[in-house]
Amino acid sequence: MALPREARRPFSTSVAPLRRRTLADREDWLGRLMLAPALVYVVALVGVPFALALALAFSSARSGSLEFSWVGLRNFWTILPDPQFHRALWNTLRFTLVSQALVIVLAVTAAHVLSAAFVGRRLVRFLLLLPWAAPVALAAIGWTWIFDSTFSVINWTMLWLGLTKRWLYWFGEPQLATAAIIIVHVWRMFPFATVITLAGMSAIPQEISEAAVIDGAGFWRRFFQVNLPLLLPIITVAVLFGVVFTSTDLSVVYLLTRGGPYNSTHVLSSLAFQRGIFGGDLGQGAAVALFLLPVLVVVAILMLRTARRAEVGA
């Protein structure tokens, strides 16, 4: 094969540049071929549905008929003044920010406790991975039993310890329902963030900490001025993961409260699901879900910047 090819290129002056070019050409071709299956999948099952979602948000499509009739901004004019939508938007922000703030504090504290060498450290790390790895939908079911209106183990324990005098109806009062959802989100993300922070801590050279000790820095000073700044990139990554998961999650709200009581705990995803899939108003459901995008665009940008900085640092 090689010979006739050479013959077809009478103008090649030297062999070396020609070989390099053909190899580069092949890489180009092969690279695209190897990416093709992934691209086809992603375009067909994310790209197309996403374009459709945009179109749906401007249409009056209902689940019964598949006709797309263009209604312009009508879906948005319907949801924007809707108090339920305001509530969902506010809840999404609130649940995400509060739970992630708690996750940071707890994860950094726990990572410091667990970073010391002790017997059974590997077992502890394994156990910490469970809440992240095990199905959150099933864990949420476990939590509904823990928060049960009559047999709540939390209530029994708190009464027994004298921490509360009245019976708490976790899913009956908006504040308690909010607390329950945040507790489950923190529970789910904090072990994962701890494990990531631990991995980041083991990457910090021991000498830096030792140098700080020799220079006379106490525990808190070392923590705030040496360890924390060095850990910041990896903590940011853990938190961004948490933000993405918490702000888009449907299963926790859906299984714990179904948006109740009195629709006070709906988040954007559960409201979109309720309006779009249950209610059959596909256009409105799609429009509600679109409001998650700005949050995620910000997260994506932050993630890219952190990744780049981490690469420069490494």
Binding site: V42, L45, P49, L52, S269, I277, L282, G285, L304
Partner: peptide
């Protein structure tokens, strides 16, 4: 970068069109 952006698109945004497809 495109792939990272795709990873960011929440399932709930595309679930209705996915259902139709």
């Amino acid at each position: 970068v495109g792939l990272l952006i795709v990873a960011m698109i929440p399932l709930i945004t595309v679930i209705v069109p996915l259902y139709i497809l």
